[in-house]
Amino acid sequence: MHKRISIPETASCRLRSALRILLTVCTILFASNTIASDGSVRTVYIAGSGNTGLDQHLTQLLKAQFDEHIVLLPVSDDRLPAIQDAPVIAIGPSAFTRVWQANRKIPILAMLVEKDLVQSYAERSPGQISAVLYDVPLLRQALTGKSILPQATKIALMATSSSAKLYDPLIEQLPDYGLEARLFLVDGNDDLIPTLVRALGYGDFLLAASDDLIYNPRTIKHILLTSYRRNRIVIGPSQAYVKAGSLASSYAPFPVMANLAARFINTYFSDGKLPAPSYPESYKVEVNKQVARSLNIPLPDRDEIAETVNVRLGDHGGAEHE
């Protein structure tokens, strides 16, 4: 006759937790020992976005940027608190938040995050928090529109009262490029289309920024169709929106972002500090040729648009203007 020993649920959980911590500590000790014994191999942890394909793709690109002395290790959330000294590359805003919540002492390099998210963290913890910024500088987007519509002089912008301040620098910069912009405030969901109607009456094109309250999957179709009915094009905010029907958007290619990330990590290993968050140095332009044809807009070659933008930016102080 067998006697069954039953372990209470809570005791079982505790046991599993203890084993997991032990395993984590062993792993970290092993890794640290590797660095200690070898002296030339360093570990960089990758906190993924949860999108396996994306995480693998970006990890591959990063690996290609590092030599054999730097190893990239994926790290799960529960192992984050135990990390010491090694930098973590966080892919996407949620990964960045998770890492920061789990361990506030380690250096974090965020990728695929927007300036608006990381700027305040980086200012509070300079050298520890950095980012390869994913959002495209608004000035670059504005000039992308100008490259497609050279005759354009007026840009319509829509913002909520909380996001309006994001556009202040752009509005100040634009006159140097023969452009002017006006901000149209959206007070609420019901106000979106009425405001858009007025904005389209003003602008030669609508510049869409990464402002989820205004441009999101629920609103974008309505915004695009209303704009095209009024014979106005939409520029930005990202490559994905171009595929959905926005006419064009600049974007930083992943290899360029990976290259900048690798340079930041190398800087950390050499100086002990991460550089300040920064935009990639080169951009490409995504265009929606089908929309251009429909609107009867002669569309220059993508590289030509990107080059025109670079030249215009270069003529007025270059990327620092961004």
């Binding site: 095209y228 014979n231 106005r232 089908q290 429909s294």
Partner: peptide, 26 residues
């Protein structure tokens, strides 16, 4: 003044082809 190169031709084409563009590219 937004699309000075746009013409009446665009008026004819726009709704249908935009629809196609938006739909097929998604």
């Amino acid at each position: 003044t937004g699309i000075t190169r746009a013409s009446s031709r665009a008026d004819y084409l726009r709704p249908l082809t935009i629809a196609v563009a938006l739909a097929s590219l998604a």
